[in-house]
């Protein structure tokens, strides 16, 4: 595709985005404003992640795109195709083969390694947004490390419900300084944010923000001593591959309450099935 520059964005724009990324890496968890461009896909559909990916991609990269943990959900397909068309990069569905992974709502089950980049699509980058709608106010709160409001919110959750009633986009503290929204990943994934050998980049296109968690950075999910953070998932094993440690999707199989649980990370599940693992409902003929 010769009509557009490599990976769609022009080099000046990529340079502007790379500067924002570098600033984000230098100040982990800090939301760096950047001049987000209109992309040929709608705001809210991953334009921030797409711009970060475009700025990071090299012709030698191998790209993996997932949405809800799966490589074949429609929006993941659409974004992967976009980069195949505009950057002609190699693609893969295997986590360990990818050099750059763009994700929406999940962190892959397989541990990441040094040299990999994980790009998150972020809808609302501001963890304080639903406590304080004004950007002018929340920026001041971050500057002053004024996170009392967040702790009061978590405390009120416990007072009302006996538990912190946040199950995804669970707020974290990065490198002991900035409270950060990890994007709407389930809190099950939160522990994987911390100390990861991979570079984690977060792009919010509509809100014009980029932030980062550099490799081997400490990321702590907010909690209280007497109510410690707990990564939770459905109390089942995958019905296809039998894994009882991966995050599960619940699939309704009939209208009489029948349901099954399957890995949300499709690559993880495929690899396990190929290795001979079988879940409760796996049929030999469904596995190649």
């Amino acid at each position: 595709m010769s009509d557009y520059n490599f990976a769609y964005l022009d080099e000046q724009t990529k340079r502007m985005i790379r500067r924002a990324i570098l600033k984000g890496v230098a100040v982990p968890g800090y939301q760096v404003p950047f001049a987000s461009r209109e992309m040929p896909m709608p705001y809210g559909w991953g334009t921030g992640g797409v711009q970060v990916t475009a700025a990071c991609l090299m012709p030698s990269d191998r790209l993996k795109v997932i949405d809800q943990g799966a490589d074949d959900t429609t929006n993941a397909v659409s974004i992967r195709r976009f980069f195949q068309r505009t950057a002609d990069v190699a693609v893969t569905s295997h986590t360990h083969e990818a050099t750059l992974i763009q994700t929406r709502h999940r962190i892959p089950e397989a541990p990441l390694r040094e040299g990999q980049i994980l790009v998150y699509q972020v809808p609302i980058p501001e963890p304080l947004r639903f406590l304080e709608p004004r950007e002018t106010e929340t920026r001041r709160m971050h500057a002053l490390e004024d996170y009392g409001l967040m702790h009061v919110k978590l405390y009120e959750d416990i007072a009302r419900n006996g538990t912190i009633a946040t199950s995804y986009a669970y707020p974290v503290m990065v490198a002991g300084r900035y409270v950060m929204d990890p994007s709407p990943i389930p809190k099950f994934d939160n522990p994987k944010l911390s100390g990861s050998p991979a570079l984690q980049l977060f792009g919010a296109g509509r809100e014009q923000r980029i932030y980062a968690v550099p490799p081997y950075t400490g990321v702590v999910s907010l909690d209280f001593e007497d109510h410690p953070f707990e990564a939770s998932k459905a109390p089942h094993a995958c019905d296809l591959c039998g894994d009882d440690g991966s995050y599960l999707d619940e699939v309704i199989t009939d209208d009489r309450g029948g349901r099954m649980f399957v890995c949300s990370d499709t690559d993880h599940c495929d690899c396990r099935q190929k290795a001979g693992h079988r879940g409760r409902l796996a049929m030999p003929e469904t596995v190649q």
């Binding site: 559909w45 949405d67 809800q68 943990g69 959900t73 429609t74 929006n75 929406r104 709502h105 999940r106 199950s167 995804y168 986009a169 709407p184 990943i185 389930p186 809190k187 099950f188 939770s232 459905a234 995050y247 599960l248 999707d249 619940e250 949300s264």
Partner: peptide, 10 residues
Amino acid sequence: LPHYVDFQSE
């Protein structure tokens, strides 16, 4: 768009 993962956690 799909929100299975978030919905599952809820």
